[in-house]
Nucleic acid binder design. Sequence first.
DNA 1: GATGAATGAGTATTCATTCAT
DNA 2: AATGAATGAATACTCATTCAT
Lengths: 174, 174, 174, 174
Amino acid sequence: MIDRKEKIMQASIQLFVQRGFHNTSTRMIAEQAGVSEGLIFRHFRSKDALLDSLLQQGADEMYQAVAEIISEHEPKDFLSKLVDSFFDIPSERFDYWRLRSQIQSIRTEWEPEEWERYLREGVLRMFKEMGFSKFELEAELLYQSLSGIRDGIVRGQIHDPEPLRELVKKKYRL
Amino acid sequence: MIDRKEKIMQASIQLFVQRGFHNTSTRMIAEQAGVSEGLIFRHFRSKDALLDSLLQQGADEMYQAVAEIISEHEPKDFLSKLVDSFFDIPSERFDYWRLRSQIQSIRTEWEPEEWERYLREGVLRMFKEMGFSKFELEAELLYQSLSGIRDGIVRGQIHDPEPLRELVKKKYRL
Amino acid sequence: MIDRKEKIMQASIQLFVQRGFHNTSTRMIAEQAGVSEGLIFRHFRSKDALLDSLLQQGADEMYQAVAEIISEHEPKDFLSKLVDSFFDIPSERFDYWRLRSQIQSIRTEWEPEEWERYLREGVLRMFKEMGFSKFELEAELLYQSLSGIRDGIVRGQIHDPEPLRELVKKKYRL
Amino acid sequence: MIDRKEKIMQASIQLFVQRGFHNTSTRMIAEQAGVSEGLIFRHFRSKDALLDSLLQQGADEMYQAVAEIISEHEPKDFLSKLVDSFFDIPSERFDYWRLRSQIQSIRTEWEPEEWERYLREGVLRMFKEMGFSKFELEAELLYQSLSGIRDGIVRGQIHDPEPLRELVKKKYRL
DNA sequence: GATGAATGAGTATTCATTCAT
DNA sequence: AATGAATGAATACTCATTCAT
């Protein structure tokens, strides 16, 4: 049972998603992780810092994913990868998205992270390159639609995303 | 300063949305509403019951809105009204949607309300009537896209929704 | 539904006995009595005053009972009546005795009421008149024994008191 | 100031007896015990559980006392020890008896503990062995009388119990 | 006499966090 | 690194009591 820090992070993201951040006590986390309550505060300055770690961990993975998409300069390929990135969320990362959505609806001061801004700029550029007259609108629409779909997936409302992905791609001829 | 019950409801939805339900104390609500803490519990059995009242109030309004849409039997008109209902959210109701989204991400046992099921069935029927071969997919895609857009609107990420509405309607020839 | 004051007293003694004085709220009393909470405070200065009224009412009845016993000057008759008074408690007065015992075990400053002092003096006098050498001890023993029996009766531990009464009387040749 | 758990128990039984269980707040207990309020709940699940601990502690001592009495098979010796056990209550245990009596008059569902049932059965058996025709009545009378006396002692109504003990023993030729 | 809305102080209990070991 | 005892502030909720009607 080494790496108790990892244990704590796993236990806490699970509980935060299931019960809500403010409705999860450090005692519960300690129990679920099988460690003492005190240990949490040796590894994380505070409960808030623990949350930040969790969010940061997810954001780090997103930077990589976004880098991979952005590296694509051919518009169709870019958009195809973009769509895939919204559909191919490994189930281990569901919790990250649910946590993110929860925090977003609690912290009103929430601002889009950098990776998100990069990504949206990329989408904008691609639609422009493809010669759409209302490229800004098209970019916005696609992004919000994909966001809605991602929410549906991680919340378990969409059980079979595959045909939906096909449909989206077909609409944009990807 | 009559109707303190209403005062309490206003104060609490505001705070719940700003700070999160579990991060808002009944004492804060009382202060914001300008009443004593005890009064909250004379009007609502518990903090949870207060939350339920808030959600119910919003759901009641949704039933009316949905009834109006469903009364339309011509597919194009139905879908046009549907799209409008996602775009025409009066700003007073922003808080309801933000609260709803927050609770959805905290209460894992959350199930779609009846009005939502009615609405989705309606969309399905309309796409079928319009002769779409993959009507189920089309319905799903439209619904999730609109949900994503609504989230964007109430979260203040979409500043001018009008051209976006036009674009959506044009895509579906409404 | 006249005489709500009486209703309040009935409801409160019942609840005080069942749940304990400090564990019974005025709201419960009001509900049980079918009156508004405010009315309790129109009829009684405070919850404590209500309790005092209840105890006083019981004490008043005891004064009469004691007067009747004391009026007897023949020792054997006195003691016979005394014993009877401990055994013949009408069931409507069970609650008074249970309340009294409860309060006695909560209010440490409790002092025996006057009727009790009168009664004990009477017992003493009678044993003296009957020529007992250790009349004080005999009086004490009889009084405490009868008290124990009364407790047993009102608590429902003694189901058939009659033969017990016979036995006591026989022991003292009454 | 070690063993704060013991400190808490001492402080609470004292206060419960003086002021009544429901009239004693956990804050008072904490102050009296010189600990923080939170600590009470680390050592006891709830205020009720604290009370149960107190009662259990007393009951444990009674089991031993009863075992000692029951080990006596000679009726006269048994009864002599029985009488002594009601008279020889060390003053440290006065509080237990007062607490017990208080709780008995508040919790209506109270049932005699096992040690009490054992003891009463023993008394019954002894009177039978001694050839009393109405042995059940005799047992009941003795038990209730002794209970009344014990109440008198722990409530401080009987200042010198010794001669009373002699008298009781003489009556039963012990 | 009677109501019921309203209050402020108080309730048991939980919280995130600290610290000696 | 790791524990678990300890804390003080905060929590949702209840209380006896008041008062305008």
